[in-house]
Design a protein around this nucleic acid. Structure first.
Lengths: 223, 223
DNA sequence: TCCGAAAGAGCGAACGTTCATTCTCATTTA
DNA sequence: TAAATGAGAATGAACGTTCGCTCTTTCGGA
């Protein structure tokens, strides 16, 4: 409900009564449609939700809606792009944390928390299922995750070069696995199943340490 | 293609020309329909694939097909049940291995390998997406995973009681997380993305050891 | 300041298509 | 011969999208 509500407070004309320019109003209507569509998609699926239902949820007629999006597919594409880039954004903060393990765990926990609070787990699952057969959606996902993965790669490579970590497998193999694990945790929305956040964080930290093997001090215990 | 081809060789009448009883033939036709439907579902989704397409793939008319399944939903249900119980079967072998870490890693790797070879990753993703909104499908998934989880629980609890492992978080929290991680790995079909099976196994072993903390020998290195 | 035309925004009935399912009738099987 | 199996045209509903129309907003020129 609050995800796409990007109301632009800057560049306001000053008046509080009719302050919106044409473009602003248009953008706001597009967000309204996307929010309505998201609700429909979540409980009927991309193909199961009809345009009529989306129109009803957005409180507008088909004729009006089609002035903003040329097709149902375009709405799906826009929602996917917004959702994926929002997810990618969360991981960007990670790269500023000098402690690799902390940075990772913090970002991953933020991701889990966000998925739980926004209730986007089933939307994400829907997107993932669609990406398996819809090339355009797949490209959007790959693009978003590719950015994350590249940043992630640089981040870990830097830590390796500085001798801070010594990953148990090479980066090219590890990165897709980490992302896969993250997806599994995201889809399952564990907090909603009664798994406490503390437990998730503990297990995540233990796991990440085992994978990355931080070398803060001389710790001569290899397998 | 070979998943549901459970041809029954036992109870054969002996003749090789027309050896099938009525019931056997019926079962075989149902499998044929399910295989055809699976193909359609994989590349169009449950809702995107039409009955006409499924009929064409199964090489039969709608009238004939409806003698075997009362609705499209029934086909989806049958496929889900077969797929989920097949997955659950893989994990059952784990519980016979006395070494917990080995048993786990072996079963998980079998799962990853099976997902890759059968090309069922996208079917599984579709099932998972459907389970988010279709209660019947959700129940099927929960039932299958519940069985796995219960067996898993007993297995790990036994190892704890024997002092073989000392999990880093309590079982009730750990089990859903392990299953979630497994799902993430399954959905992403890492081998198809060029991640070698060796790397997956290494990371899995390292991770599992960190989570379960096996105590084979006195290993006084805690954090 | 006001006018009128052009463009934007909205409506909802209607379009042609496709959907899941059913019906009737023929053929095969026990 | 009765039941099971199969075919495929037919059915009504629902789909995504379009169309023609009205109402509102914008804005240059008198």
């Amino acid at each position: 409900m609050t995800d796409l509500d990007t109301t632009f407070d800057d560049a306001g004309p000053g008046d509080a009564d009719a302050p919106m320019t044409r473009g602003e109003k248009r953008e706001q209507t597009m967000c309204r449609i996307m929010e309505a569509a998201k609700k429909c998609f979540v409980h009927a699926g991309f193909q199961g939700a009809s345009m009529q239902q989306i129109c009803a949820a957005a409180e507008m007629s088909p004729g009006a809606l089609y002035r903003y999006f040329p097709s149902k597919e375009a709405i799906i594409g826009a929602i996917t792009e917004a959702d994926r880039s929002q997810d990618a954004e969360i991981f960007r903060t990670m790269f500023e944390n000098p402690n690799v393990v902390d940075g990772f765990v913090t970002a991953a926990m933020a991701h889990v928390r966000h998925m739980h609070e926004s209730g986007n787990a089933s939307l994400f699952t829907e997107i993932r299922a669609e990406s398996m057969r819809n090339e355009a959606i797949d490209l959007t996902c790959q693009s978003a995750m590719g950015t994350v993965q590249q940043g992630f790669r640089d981040y870990l490579q830097g830590a390796i070069d500085r001798g801070e970590i010594e990953p148990c497998v090479e980066l090219d193999a590890m990165l897709p696995m980490i992302i896969a694990i993250g997806e599994g945790l995201a889809i399952n929305d564990l907090p909603s199943k009664g798994v406490p956040l503390d437990s998730i964080e503990t297990l995540m930290r233990v796991t990440v340490e085992a994978m990355l093997r931080p070398r803060k001090r001389a710790n001569a215990n290899d397998n």
